[in-house]
Nucleic acid binder design. Structure first.
Lengths: 236, 236, 236, 236
DNA sequence: CATGAATGAGACTTCATTCAT
DNA sequence: AATGAATGAAGTCTCATTCAT
């Protein structure tokens, strides 16, 4: 028994019934709105409560505090993204197609509902004095980039992706431009044409990732294939 | 001098002596430190004043308030970057060399002191009720990317940079990975070897920007056209 | 540089001018009132501010928080007691006289203004979760009992106090009844006749402390001395 | 049963079944634990409910509120002590033996679970706006010290205890050191050897309470008279 | 010009208590 | 009888900003 250790008085347990689960969802939903609109510091528990027309105390019945709520908001959002990617990634297709899916899905999710959250993560996750949040984010960040790393690794194994450059750098080449596009979108409040952007991005990006001469070979094969297909269509 | 922030706008007095100007510079310098270390909300006028060993009230003698000080800090920072790039860019050398200078200079400036300011801009330019700042930022953002856009355009003109992709996208391919590298560096507290990093980045990046050989270019265009046609057929 | 260490934003320094010292004194004075009337938990910074007709924020300009204010209040009070004892203790007189001074001074100080503070220290200094306050008190507690321990030790050296019992127990025999008297006074809100009480207490207490047969010897000597004095008065 | 707290006073229902009584006992038992560990203010109904694994609301079904529960807890505790002493006191033995029983029983009861409750009484019986509790405590306090007073009175009657000092003071000499020992034990987290402590305490204490020999008594009275006369001459 | 001093406004958080079910 | 759920009221503390000197 160390006398210097203060035993904290136990917190109220958050209920777990159907009704309360709804409450949790409501608070998370509105919390996501407010945090993404205002950022962590400018978001207030008061505003979250007001938008739901509930007492501020109720928010604290379901979440230990502002910080935990924010962590949950971000965590849930990551989970959604990760789930969407993992569920939809067309693993049987070629690497380029998978990459395109990856990029497109991300941009769509971010641009349609997530610019605020994106900024939240980007700015709150890194500034000094936010290590708790940063720490909570680290594993999510890993799970979040895992599919991409895996994709690139498989590409290297199959020879579709160049092997003369560390994976880390390739990842940077993919995520970097994506983030930059988001940043532009955030600053300009302009929600851009995702599909068009993705096509353009891939056109520049993929050659950089390909094995040095593979592109030429692939395009030639492609041309031959298309030609053959046309012949089949014409003649058959 | 950035037009959006150049009015000193003191509330009661307009100091113009040499001593006053030194004060303004001091406050801007320390303000930059503090804002970049802590972000806007977590930065306090108290801390800024204490680091200068002056009274908090003095800060308010020279700046209308925290917000204005922050705007000036950001504006000055942009000005510096722009000036450094514009002054040093070796316009007589080939495009790759110029690009390398651009990338290297940026990474150096950012890694030295700019990651915090970068996040500051990101988080402040956005959230609700901060439109003023966002508006003040837009022209800076434009001037800031101008040298790069110019560089890429000259590259296209000279045939060193591919012409089959919009400039905007090429810019994204340059700035995106740079920013991502910075973000990684900050999160991992690993002060990265700038020169080494720049070399690696350019090795992957430049080929993607280069004008491809004729056959390659034609094949690429072909592929893009087919894809677009497919999309039209699919989506309508 | 450990990224997990959060650098706290620096606190405002408490001013040190004559005016501000007066403020500190005022707040300590009223803080002493309120803490002693209500105990730590029920005392509020709001009430302290209201009684002084100042803003609550002002209290926090001069003290880091409620806890620090309370610690200062208690510390100052101890200091007063210690100073009074140390200054007034008649070291040239016999042990009994010194002990009487010690007991009397304490009871007077406690009963006239300190019952609330006494209860504050007794109850707040020991309950779980108050270790910070308890720790701050420990050295005071030592300084506070030091004169008594010294007194008893000198008594043992001179043969006036029995040596067959550990000092600790003797100290308990002195402080215990004193505290009990205070406790009674606190609970009954009855401020008791200090002088009368002290005389009675000493009459019972001192014999218990004396060397087993010393009392008899001392009283005999006393009687002889008084008689001699009377003779001198009559005859001389 | 303590008259001041015997009314169960449920707000809406008056449960009287065996099951209900068990609930009341459970809550009182755990309430005692929590109040004694944390003190009144820092104890929470949440913690009491959680330790019993019942709903907070249930506590309020059986007690009007926190305050009433606390009053009952204290009352029951007093009742227990009083009952234990009254039942076990060996009235047929000599006074010293009875006193030893009294002291030993108290220390044991206190050290087992009572130090917190002791402080609880001390802090709750006092501060402003708590007069109700203080009033409820007074009769308990009286019943609680009654056996000791009786003991000492019988000692005086039989000549075993000195008669030259008011009973009240003798009581103080007994209870005071006991309480002080408890306090030390709590502060030092050292669970003291009760039997050893009691022996030591009695060895110093009892002689002080004993009727002195005739000469000694006369001399003591003489000394006190002289002192009183001096005081009259000096002050009054 | 510089600042010591003060503060209004508001943030997060806790907890005893109520009430419908 | 028991409780899930909600909340009013209150408390501590922070900070940009003002103003007289």
């Amino acid at each position: 028994m160390n006398p210097a250790v203060e035993i904290p008085s136990p917190r109220r347990r958050a209920p777990a019934s159907a009704k309360s689960e709804q409450r949790v969802r409501d608070i998370l939903r509105v919390g996501r709105e407010v945090f993404s609109e205002r950022g962590y510091e400018r978001a207030t528990t008061t505003e979250i409560a007001q938008r739901l027309d509930i007492s501020e105390a109720t928010v604290f019945t379901y979440f230990r505090g502002k910080r935990e709520l924010c962590t949950r908001v971000i965590g849930d959002w990551y989970d959604e993204i990760i789930a969407t990617i993992e569920a939809g990634l067309p693993r049987e297709r070629d690497i380029r197609t998978q990459l395109q899916f990856f990029v497109q899905t991300h941009l769509r999710l971010f641009l349609t509902q997530g610019t605020g959250l994106c900024a939240l993560v980007l700015s709150e996750g890194r500034s000094k004095g936010q290590e708790e949040l940063g720490d909570a984010l680290a594993p999510l960040q890993r799970r979040y980039t895992a599919p991409l790393m895996d994709l690139l690794a498989r590409g290297q194994a199959s020879g579709e992706i160049r092997r003369d450059v560390p994976l880390r750098l390739l990842r940077t080449m993919v995520l970097g431009p994506m983030e930059h596009l988001l940043w532009e979108a955030v600053l300009q409040q302009r929600p851009a044409d995702v599909d068009e952007t993705v096509r353009g991005l891939l056109a520049v990006l993929y050659p950089a990732l390909q094995a040095p001469h593979a592109e030429l070979a692939a395009l030639r094969r492609f041309r031959v294939d298309v030609e053959a297909a046309m012949h089949r269509a014409d003649g058959g």
